[in-house]
Every structure is written in structure tokens, then in C-alpha cells.
Amino acid sequence: MTLPALVEPARELSRAEINRYSRHLLIPNVGMIGQRRLKNARVLVIGAGGLGSPTLLYLAAAGVGTIGIIDFDQVDDSNLQRQIIHGVDTVGQLKVDSARKAIARLNPYVQVETHTDRLERDMAVELFSRFDLIMDGTDNFATRYLVNDACVLANKPYVWGSIFRFEGQASVFWENAPDGLGLDYRDLYPEPPPPEMAPSCSEGGVFGILCASIASIMATEAVKLITGIGEPLLGRLVVYDALEMRYRELPIRRLPGRQPVNELAEDYQVFCGLGLPADGATTSVPGISVTELAKLMEQNEMPVLIDVREPTEWDIVRIPGATLLSKSPALPQTLLQRYGMDANLVIACKSGRRSAEVTRELLNEGMRHVRNLEGGVQAWVKDVDPSLPSY
């Protein structure tokens, strides 16, 4: 079912704009009025990462008049495999600044508004209220639920995309859509999955080209909603498997008995089972710094170092002397049986989060000489041996 156009047409296009967008103007469904709607549109893209990068480029090329970008991160070498709006010359820069430069090179008629803050509950609704449409390509459930709830409270539709390894998903959510068609993210995911079942791309990896496949769907849906053409993905979930080169479509229906969103949650990290905000997630278990571990290694007093990452991560980089035993439900009992109750263990992962969970489980089993490696392998590369690769 076609929805009414989100945006009223802007003033007449200039001669230069007509030349630029002529291939759009020739399409009867878009035409001059549709292009003027795009010119008048204000779209906020959350994140200039894997999905945000191609989405931003296509929205800019299409002629969306004002594009907002919110991202607190900086461009890193590991981004360049998929985040195509950035380049070698912008490594180390804020992603919003890198993206703004790329958009300016592509289409000088687009106004870009940048926001360098992390998206938080105390500013999300007010920020969203300034835009016609929100684009969510974030890679964690806590932010996804925040985006959903803030869109509900701001009465804004949003286009959502998700990627992991070789699979991607996309849909449109709009709680207050016309004609009783309203749906939101909680109709698809009433409850967040357990954290161990939802690794991020930085932990599990992602096929770079997949980002373009899903982002192109997201940008298409944005243009359709802005101009009021076609049938949007509201009420439908598109699932794409790149390995099989197969698309599937699943219906989304309003969840019976779902309570309306009347306010934002106090803490979306806690809601998603992460316990503590990211900055303090590892402070509740005993820890050891990488420099302390390196000193023990030099003194031949090395504890048993257990790396709980996946084999693919281990193949990229590892700490000398570590033993790979990937995180699993059986791992605590395996370690207990292999090393005994009184073993002096240090548990490591990429960043310290997964290893903190394992450390906590071992403490619950009664082991008292177990510590978490603070900052994980990333910290080892940064503070002990910068010659090693990172990811």
C-alpha cells in the first residue's frame, strides 16, 4: 500500500539541478514534483559506518536537500573494507567530517548537519523531531531500541537495516503510520536476544559488499517514503543471504497485547542484558592490565593466559603464550577440569567484554585466582606491542 508523501515539494529546481537530476525527472513516478520533495527533505542517518556510508552517498546523489549525520567515532583502517564514504586520506578524522567532505564532492547542493555526540536518551527525541525521516543502520540492540522508542515519541518513521557476516535485513517502522498500519521494532523483536547471541560486526565480521546491498534497499525505501511512491517495506522484513544470493520476505504484524511506548527506558544497556554501560562493563570482576601482564611475562611469572575469542580472530593476532579456548557454555567447566580450582588464570578476548563474562562465570564456580585482561588484545597491541596487527 502506497503511503502519502512525507515531504511537501520545495521551490522550483534550478537549471543546474534539473541537469543533475534529469534521469529522475524522466521517471513518471518521480518527476519534477518528486525531485522537489527530495530537495525539501530532511533525513537523519545514524552512523556513518558500514550501512550509513553507502546510504549517505545514495541519498546525497538522489538530491535529498538536508542530511544529518550523527556519529562520535573516528575513521580507522579497519573501516575501509566496507565504509566506502571514507578513504585513506581521512583515517583518524571524525567520521562525520569525512562523510561531509565526501558528500560535498558528490553533490554541492546538499546541506549536511553533523552531530559528533553518541546518541543518548536525553537528546534522541529532540534531535529526531528536527527531521522528516530517520535511517538506522546501527550495529547493537541497545541503540536500535533507543532509536525505535525515540522515533515513536517523536512521531517519525524510520528505515532500519542490519548486517552480520553474509546476511542482512531491512524494513520500515512507523508506529503512527496512516490507516492503522503502524508498526515498530518491538513487533519484530519484542525482547532483545541474550548478549552472547548478538555479537557485533567488530566481533563476528561482515562481508564488506553486503553493506551496499542492504544500504541500497534502505536508501530506496527513504526515497519512496519521501516522495510517496511505490509500496514501502512497512509490515515486511526483507532478508538477504549473500552466499546463496537469495532474498526472502517475511510479514511483520503488530504484536498482540504490545504496550505502547510512552517514555524512553532508563538504561538501554541494562534492558539488553549488558548489565553496565560500556565504559564500566568490566569493572565488576578482578582485572589485570596488559602492562602488568607483560611485566609478569618478563619475570617468567606468566599466569595461564586463556584467549576466549574465535579461531578467525586468533589467526589475525594473538598474545604470546596464550591458549585458545573459545567462549562457550561449557568453557567454565572445561577450564575448571583442565587447570583446577586454584589455577592462576588470566582470561582475554578482543576488548575485555567477553572475557569479563567468562571471568565472572569462573568466579561463580568458586575459582578465586582468575582475572580479566583489561582492554584485551586491543590494549596489548596498543600499549605493549604496536607492531602487531589489529582489527
Rank of each mutant, 00 (worst) to 15 (best):
Q81L: 15
Q81H: 13
R82C: 12
Q83T: 02
I84K: 06
I85E: 02
H86G: 11
H86Y: 13
H86E: 06
H86D: 09
G87L: 03
G87R: 05
G87K: 01
G87D: 07
V88Q: 05
D89K: 03
D89V: 03
T90E: 09
V91S: 08
V91R: 00
V91Y: 04
G92H: 03
Q93N: 12
Q93H: 15
Q93A: 14
K95T: 03
D97W: 12
D97Q: 15
S98E: 13
S98Q: 11
R100H: 11
R100M: 07
K101G: 14
K101P: 08
A102I: 09
A102F: 14
I103F: 12
I103Y: 05
I103H: 11
I103D: 01
A104F: 06
A104C: 08
A104V: 12
R105W: 07
L106M: 13
N107D: 01
N107P: 00
P108W: 10
Y109A: 14
Y109E: 13
Q111R: 15
Q111L: 07
Q111W: 07
E113Y: 13
E113V: 15
T114I: 15
T114S: 11
T114Q: 10
H115V: 00
T116S: 14
T116R: 14
T116W: 05
T116M: 05
D117M: 11
D117F: 05
D117P: 00
R118H: 09
R118Q: 09
L119S: 03
L119T: 05
L119I: 00
E120Y: 00
E120V: 09
E120T: 05
R121F: 13
R121L: 14
D122Y: 01
D122M: 02
D122N: 08
D122C: 00
M123C: 01
M123A: 09
M123N: 13
A124Q: 02
V125N: 03
V125L: 04
V125Y: 08
E126C: 04
E126S: 05
L127M: 10
F128G: 02
S129Y: 11
S129P: 00
R130M: 02
R130V: 01
F131K: 04
F131S: 03
F131Q: 01
D132Q: 07
D132T: 12
L133P: 03
M135G: 11
M135D: 04
D136L: 13
D136S: 10
G137M: 10
G137P: 05
T138R: 08
T138I: 06
D139W: 15
D139M: 14
D139E: 13
N140F: 15
F141A: 15
F141S: 07
F141W: 11
A142E: 14
T143I: 01
T143Q: 03
R144W: 11
Y145T: 08
Y145E: 09
L146W: 11
L146N: 10
N148P: 01
N148Q: 08
N148K: 01
D149G: 02
D149T: 10
A150W: 08
A150M: 05
A150P: 02
C151D: 06
V152E: 03
L153P: 00
L153V: 13
L153S: 06
L153Y: 02
A154T: 09
K156H: 05
K156Q: 08
K156S: 01
P157V: 08
P157L: 06
Y158P: 10
Y158V: 09
V159R: 13
V159A: 06
W160Y: 15
W160S: 03
G161S: 11
G161A: 12
G161N: 11
S162L: 01
S162A: 14
